[in-house]
Design a protein around this nucleic acid. Structure first.
Lengths: 255, 255
DNA sequence: TTGCTCCTCACGTCACGTGAGGTGGC
DNA sequence: TTGCTCCTCACGTCACGTGAGGTGGC
């Protein structure tokens, strides 16, 4: 058989044949006078064996010992374990995707925090909000995430959601043209609303959180918004914020 | 933040950062006087977003549009379909592996034909047998495989198995030193045993099967073995073999 | 003569890992 | 002065795909 014929019979490309020769899983066959390779049924069977093994998920490097020796050892056990692990990974991805699709959240959102979405919020505010959630989710540990998820879930309570949406949009609208009185009113309204969204606000005491939140505040918000955040942090007092009160305020203001 | 710090915070390597710069998913940050990169919280968030998307299974190429636009479109749906397909593939592999492990067959065996294994057969004969099964399985279509699987399953019947094992070992032992009388006896015994292993022997009329079997016969068997196969093919008559009777004989002789 | 097959390089893929070789910062 | 960090190339990975450029075979 020529290259083309054995390739067709085995259902592989000629390039695949060449590759198998190069890496040594399939020996180079005899050449005819014109340089053409001349394959035998033995080569075809060997090729089919190699294909069966690659289709099980084995690498070409793992194959030669399996072709020659009588004992396959624990290869199948090992392969099965690997496959189980891969399937578990892919299944976890599907679960994440299912949760994202159920909440309609953006694809890069942490689904743990996505139960809470405010449909009435401006796109820009929603984006900042989502960004902060991603940062927070990554920095927190299990406990911190659970606490935060519970806190955000409280926002979704009927009645509360409208208030939060309103506060968020008013926050997003703050800029240099905003009269100081509106900042005061917004701060007062925000502080008044806080008891409604949950009795206990989670402590975000993971390392770096406060510092990074402060940096985000300086990066993403304007003077009016920062003034509001300071006002809210002050209104809170030290009992909660504990050193990163302003970073904390960010989460509130944008969330 | 320096490269090392943002990398540590995000849980990626510095090389990964560089790669993201190269392909353009993550913009190059400002450089300090000494050439060091200076990252911001904004970069960290962007990096975390990219990571979340890659961990969902998206390629780096697919990511930029998702980072900028409001609409994620049907990306999640598409991803989910891909993941489902991958999981189906891996699950099929696991099933193949489970069947192989259940029968104790070699890892490159077609499990369809692996229900039949003759434990008492010499390693060399078992290897030839397995090789032929691989070739056959690949060349046959669904119907052919089913017929062959049923035929082989008949070998596993109590009492029959011992006979087949005995015939196979006697076939494997044939060589130049074998007295012609033993070839005659073996052929007679084989023909006598055939009705016991199944009332209908499957027709292997897939294209190329006869030809390739004949080639295998010439390649893998010695003169005495070929003489036996001819004898069996003749004994069969034309009703079954139909042009590739000798190739057929191979399957029998080695199986 | 034309179309098909075969041949040998050799670069491209994808998301980085891994040195090599050199220079600031504490 | 020493160790740590940062920098820029640049090759390697894995299983081939895909031309490029040239030569036999019917």
């Amino acid at each position: 058989m020529n290259s083309g014929e054995i390739a067709r019979l085995a259902g592989v490309s000629v390039r695949t044949l060449r590759h198998y020769h190069q890496v040594g899983v399939l020996p180079e066959p005899h050449r005819r006078g014109n340089g053409y390779r001349e394959y035998t049924v033995g080569d075809l069977i060997l090729l089919l064996r190699i294909r069966r093994l690659t289709e099980l998920g084995l690498s070409l490097e793992e194959i030669p010992p399996l072709l020659s020796s009588e004992e396959s050892g624990d290869v199948l056990q090992r392969l099965d374990d690997e496959l189980a692990a891969q399937i578990a990974l892919l299944t976890a991805r599907r679960e994440t995707i299912a949760r994202l699709r159920a909440t309609g959240a953006r694809p890069d959102a942490p689904p743990d925090f996505a139960a809470f979405t405010t449909p009435g919020v401006t796109p820009a505010a929603a984006r900042q909000d989502g960004d902060l959630m991603i940062l927070l989710h990554h920095l927190l540990d299990e406990d911190g995430r659970d606490a935060m998820a519970g806190y955000l879930a409280a926002f979704a309570r009927p009645g509360v959601l409208d208030t939060v949406t309103d506060l968020t949009n008013r926050f997003a609208a703050l800029d240099a043209a905003t009269p100081p009185a509106e900042i005061d009113r917004l701060a007062a309204d925000a502080l008044a609303a806080i008891p409604a969204v949950g009795d206990r606000i989670p402590r975000l005491d993971a390392p770096r959180v406060g510092e990074l939140f402060a940096a985000y505040r300086d990066l993403a918000f304007n003077d009016a918004q920062r003034a509001f955040l300071d006002r809210v942090a002050d209104g809170y007092g030290d009992g909660h914020g504990d050193g990163y009160g302003d970073g904390y305020g960010d989460g509130l203001g944008a969330g």
